[in-house]
């Protein structure tokens, strides 16, 4: 039996040292981060009035899990047709995601839907196209009916077509993967 005592003693030492080996901890998230994601954290719509080059911007801010933190109201003037662009950003990584979408135009399409009290006041038209001539929606125009007033929402949807090719006449209901789907409050008047 005695010759096993050193064996068990060294075994015990091994176990105890393994259990206490926590000084240099692998679980501390380092510089490279632990679990970074390709998230869209900020969405900004910039509308330019071509008559006087004045701009309206509205930013929506989301957290890492995509929960809306704040969204600015888009205030529009009746009778104006705005030139619009949408930009997407990941503020956590300092990444411009607009570029990514721009690089993959064939796989993306934005949809803009005026809802509520402004559903009849706004007419949105997409002005850019992909290599197949299908709409993309990074650039668009919003025509505000003269004499209109009221408040409502602008629903912004980004469809991602990686499972099947994007086709002509896509609708929100046929989107295979949704990257973005939220609303901006809008006032007209």
């Amino acid at each position: 039996m005695n010759r096993f005592i050193p064996f068990f003693r060294s075994l015990t030492f091994l176990f105890v040292s393994a259990l206490l080996f926590v000084a240099c901890d692998s679980t501390d998230p380092g510089e490279t981060g632990a679990g970074e994601e390709e998230v869209i954290s900020n969405v900004t719509i910039t509308l330019t009035n071509p008559a006087d080059n004045s701009t309206v911007t509205a930013e929506a801010v989301f957290d890492e899990a995509g929960v809306e933190q704040s969204v600015e109201t888009i205030a529009l003037t009746p009778g104006v047709t705005y030139d619009g662009v949408i930009t997407l950003r990941n503020r956590f990584e300092g990444e411009d995601i607009t570029e990514e979408v721009d690089d993959e135009r064939d796989e993306h399409q934005f949809f803009y839907v005026a809802q509520g009290g402004v559903s009849n006041a706004l007419t949105v038209a997409i002005t850019d196209t992909d290599s197949n001539g299908f709409p993309v929606g990074l650039a668009f125009t919003i025509e505000v009916t003269s004499g209109a007033s009221g408040s409502g929402d602008l629903r912004v949807v980004l469809g991602h077509y990686d499972e099947r090719p994007k086709e002509a006449n896509e609708t929100i209901d046929t989107i295979p993967e949704t990257d973005i789907d939220f609303t901006y409050p809008v006032t007209v008047g």
């Binding site: 679980t27 679990g35 970074e36 994601e37 890492e64």
Partner: peptide, 18 residues
């Protein structure tokens, strides 16, 4: 028991922990 959970560089679902 000594347990360590580590996320690789990409992706996140649950945090690192010990």
């Amino acid at each position: 028991m000594n347990q360590a959970n580590v996320n690789a560089e990409s992706g996140y679902l649950i945090p690192n922990f010990r």
